[in-house]
Amino acid sequence: MWKLFKKKNSSHVAKDRLKILLISDRMNCSPEMMEKIKTDIISVLSNYMKIDTQSMEIEITKTDSKGRNALFPSLYANIPIIDLKK
């Protein structure tokens, strides 16, 4: 019984993996492209401010809406600013 709670259900693992996978499948977005987007964002922002490139994260998530056609992905970016003045 205890083992059941220790390990995450494999069906949840499958569902979570699929959700991430299908977002990039649906928009033809590869991990390489995400990396490119990330470096581009860094280079643009660096012209204006000092950002923490180590802990910044960008990812594509699904916006919460119902129906297949209403479902659209959005780019989520968390970029910590070290100093506003360059």
């Binding site: 059941l4 259900n9 494999s10 069906s11 949840h12 499958a14 569902k15």
Partner: peptide
């Protein structure tokens, strides 16, 4: 599915 090893 009941055991959580298959998506419902």
């Amino acid at each position: 599915i009941k055991k959580g090893d298959m998506m419902s």
